[in-house]
Amino acid sequence: MAKDNKFDKVINIKNRKASFQFEFVDTYVAGMVLKGTEIKSIREAKVSLNEAFCLFLDGELYVRQMHISPYSMAASYNHVAIRDRKLLLSKKELEKLETKSQEKGLTIIPVRIFINDRGMAKMEIALGRGKKSQDKRQDLKEKDAKREIQRMAFD
């Protein structure tokens, strides 16, 4: 008898602008403190990371401006769409991130949200440095060159 897995649907919500606007120095995977209706909305992929950013408050890491749409099937106990959500990392990782984020030009960016094989919602965060416009143009040129090489390979 096959084992019935209710987490077969792959959830992978990305912040597409993050890789274009930032150069990633380090990446981490963090857990999130969520309410019941929030995890249900995440499983329906009703999340936006476009304006989200991470910050430290009292030695703990929070994600701010992440929009999780209210769950459609909830009656009166629904969540607030935009609120600060605590991220769960080890104490060593938190200390390392806090010292690095205080350096000039480095910031912590949420890159993607996914559901792991145990059904837990995780967030991939990156320590990033902002790109200048010339760096962005260089990335676009490299991307176009790769696309041209692939086109020639298929012809």
Rank of each mutant, 00 (worst) to 15 (best):
A126N: 02
A75P: 03
T27K: 13
R43S: 04
E51C: 01
N12G: 00
S48C: 06
A74D: 10
F154R: 15
A18D: 06
P70K: 13
Q102C: 03
D8P: 00
K131L: 13
K40W: 02
I149Y: 10
F20E: 15
A153H: 10
L57V: 13
D8C: 07
D139L: 15
D26Y: 10
L127F: 09
I82P: 00
Q102S: 14
F154I: 11
E51I: 00
L57P: 00
C54V: 08
E103P: 01
G59E: 10
A52K: 02
I108L: 11
I68K: 01
L57G: 00
I42P: 02
I109W: 05
K143T: 11
K100Y: 10
V29L: 03
A2W: 04
K3A: 06
G36L: 12
F7G: 02
A30I: 11
E93D: 15
L89V: 07
M123Q: 05
D84W: 03
F22D: 03
L106N: 10
D4H: 07
I113N: 04
L89G: 05
K9D: 12
G128F: 03
K46I: 00
K141H: 09
K143S: 13
A75R: 15
V33M: 08
G119A: 09
R112I: 00
F22I: 07
V80E: 14
D155L: 13
K100T: 02
M32C: 09
A18L: 10
M152T: 02
K9T: 15
M32E: 05
F53E: 04
A75M: 10
A30D: 05
Q21C: 04
E51L: 09
K136P: 01
T107R: 07
V80G: 00
S19F: 12
R112C: 04
E95F: 02
G128T: 08
K122C: 14
M66G: 01
M32H: 05
N78E: 05
L49N: 01
